Every structure is written in structure tokens, then in C-alpha cells.
Computed example of a mutant assay.
Amino acid sequence: MASGTVYRRETPAGATSWVAHVTWQEGGRRRQSKRTYRTKKEAQQALAELIATHRTGTFVAPSRLTLRDYSVGWLAGLETQGRKASTLRGYRQVLDLYLLPRLGHVPLQDLRTPDFDKLYRDLLVGGSRNGGPLSMTSVHHVHAAANKMLNDAERKGLVTRNVARLADAPSLTTARAKAPEMQVWTPAELAGLLRSIEGHHNEALFLTIAMTGMRRSEAVGLRWCDVELTRGALVVSQAATQVDGVEQIDAPKSRRSRRVIDIDPATTAILQRYRASQRERLFMLGIPMQSDDRVFTTELGRPIRPDSVTQAFGRLVDATDLPRIRLHDLRHTHASQLLMAGVNVKVVSERLGHASVSFTLDTYAHVMPGQQAEAAAAVAALLGPG
């Protein structure tokens, strides 16, 4: 059973503070904790909370471990758990750019919810690298990292509770609503790009992304053993990313991202010709092909780097009069055109490998404006003439 007292302490200079002193038995030994506060009321409140945690079995031993020092072991633990290298890189970037410069010096047990409220406000006002506002989506990611860190700290008994969980952070729904509208091409614009790259070394790559909605990492990681040309289908079974200049091969983004995507006859034919050309070129170079070789490679048959794919796409678009879009917008274009063509949203969601149909609806609801009118007309038709 814990007990304690509050007493006043004066410095030689005459300054006054109040100490909450708690004692308890642990492992047959007497333990104690002393914390200093500005006022008697604060010390009494802290004492009551400490004694209450002993009674409920939620007591956390006092520690001056800072957020910065804790983050080192936390990241190492995530790596031990087998988290993807790209995920770890994302956490490190959030820590190094946003969390640690502002709160890294603060002991974990001294962090308070208002600290995170202020952090998010400051980031939204001037948190970007150039001193401008940081997007709501980025601030949401900062909150997600902080929440994960302190959840783990609470689970391991390093803090009494996760104070970041209570902070006022932008929700992902709000962040997406405030984000710039996605850029997509019309069917005519997409056809224009595909015509402009006919015969280009990367024709098959960008045609495949455009006609399947695959993510860049999925296309870069695609192997010939994942391609069923006789059936007209691709199996998404791995994703290739690059972390600090080193390629990382991981499972796709989520369980639903592991999927089979049917491809149209024209795309199948292009891939067949591309494979024959690739095989002939590598044969001339004395490089044998294996079934697990990558589909999309350099001229020498080596795996392509993800960023080089993005750069190559940008150059091809710049060589046309088409509106400039990002490589990832080919995925948005694919989804938007399917939905506008009336394809069932569940089929579109499965094709894209989204975690849920609701995510697909939230992302692309704006491209289905006519369905509300169709629904109203359908209900009226059921009732018949009035």
C-alpha cells in the first residue's frame, strides 16, 4: 500500500515549491518518489493520482526518459517486429522533421495533451521545410506516429496513459476533404499518352499501370512468374521500394493488396511482344532469363528503380501537350474511368487492392454524381404513377 505526504520546500534564495512524496513497498524493499510542483494544490493532486495508481495496479515508476531517447529503442523494436523498411523510414522522417525537434527533450512522463495540441497547431501554421503551412494530411501522419509511440509506451508501463490520443489532431477524413483535388485524365487524354509512347521501351510499363491501376511499387516488383498471359491476368504478390538507395522487396501494402488483376487482350498482346523483345535483347547480351525475373527492367535486364519510373513518366508527359499529372494519378485515372463507366464499386475496390470498399467510395465518390439521380428515379419507378 502506498502512502505519502505533501510538504513545502524553500531554496536559500527564498523561492518556495511544494513536494509530493510517495513511499511504497516493492520486492521487500521500501521505494519512494519525490516530484516538485509550483503550488500546494498541484502537489496534492499529483499525490492523490500517484496513490490511486498504486491502488488500481496502474502505477508507473518515475522516469526521466525523454521522448528522443525512447524513440531510439522504439524504432529498434519495430524493426525486430518485422515492420517494412519503408514504414520505418516514414516513422524516422516524422520523428526527425517534426516530433523530436519540438518535443524530443521532454521526458515521456512530463508530456501533456496540450503539448501535442500546440505541436499540431504550429505545424499547420508553419511546419513545412520552407516555413509554410504543413498539410493536414501530413499533420495527421505526425499524430499517427506520436499516438503509436505513446500507445506502445503505455503498454510497456513507461507512462500512465497515452496523452497524444486525446490531442486535437486533424482526422484523415477532414485532411482528405481539404487536400487538393486529384488530377485525372479523360479517356481521350489517356489514349493520347498511350499513342505517344508506342514503341517506347517503357510502353508496356506505363500501359500496364494505366490499364490495371497498379501501384508503382507493385509494377516495379512484378515478375514474369506473376504474369499469366494465356489467361490474361497479373498476380500482385510483392512490392519493390527503395530505402536509402537499397531495394526492399516486401509483401503488398495490405492483405487485400494481394490480388489477381484481369488484363484486356490489347494489354496482353503488348506484354507478349515486350517479353519476346526483352528475351531476344538479353539473349544477345548473353543474359539468360529466369521465370522469377522482373517484368520491367533496364536495357541490361536489371531491376528498375522506383524513382526512375516516376522521372521517366514525367519526361514522357512533358513531351506531349497533355495536362501534367503524377504517376500515381494514372491509378486514380484508372479508378475514375471504371466508376464513370458504371463498373461496380466493389469490383473497382478489388482491382485497386483497397483495404475496404468504403475507402474506395470515400476516395472516388465525386466521380459518381449521376448515381444519386438514378437511385431517386429507381425508387420512383417502384412506386409507380401517383
Rank of each mutant, 00 (worst) to 15 (best):
Q32T: 14
Q32S: 15
Q32P: 11
Q32F: 09
S33F: 08
S33H: 13
S33C: 12
S33P: 08
S33Y: 05
K34Q: 12
K34I: 13
R35A: 14
Y37M: 08
T39N: 10
K41W: 03
K41Y: 01
K41G: 04
A43E: 03
A43Q: 01
A43I: 07
Q44W: 03
A46V: 10
L47N: 00
A48N: 04
A48T: 10
A48E: 04
A48V: 09
L50Q: 13
L50Y: 04
I51A: 07
A52M: 10
H54R: 13
H54E: 02
R55A: 15
R55K: 14
R55Q: 14
R55H: 15
G57E: 01
G57R: 05
G57P: 04
T58Q: 08
T58R: 08
T58K: 12
F59N: 02
F59A: 06
V60P: 01
A61V: 10
S63L: 12
L65F: 02
L67P: 08
L67W: 06
R68T: 01
R68C: 03
D69A: 13
D69G: 04
S71L: 02
G73Q: 02
W74R: 12
W74Q: 02
A76W: 07
L78P: 05
Q81F: 07
K84N: 05
K84P: 03
A85T: 12
S86W: 08
T87H: 12
T87G: 04
T87I: 09
T87Q: 06
L88V: 08
L88D: 12
R89I: 02
R89S: 13
Q93C: 15
Q93W: 12
Q93M: 11
V94M: 12
L95M: 11
D96K: 12
L97N: 10
L97W: 02
Y98D: 00
L100W: 01
P101Y: 03
H105Q: 10
H105V: 10
V106K: 11
P107C: 00
P107S: 03
R112T: 14
P114C: 05
P114S: 09
D115E: 12
D115P: 08
F116R: 09
F116T: 07
F116Q: 11
D117C: 08
D117V: 08
D117Y: 05
K118Q: 15
K118I: 10
R121I: 10
R121C: 13
D122T: 14
D122W: 10
D122V: 13
L124M: 14
V125N: 00
G126T: 06
G127W: 02
G127V: 13
G127H: 00
N130H: 11
N130A: 11
G131C: 03
G131Y: 02
G131H: 01
G132A: 06
L134P: 00
L134S: 00
L134N: 00
L134M: 02
S135A: 14
M136P: 03
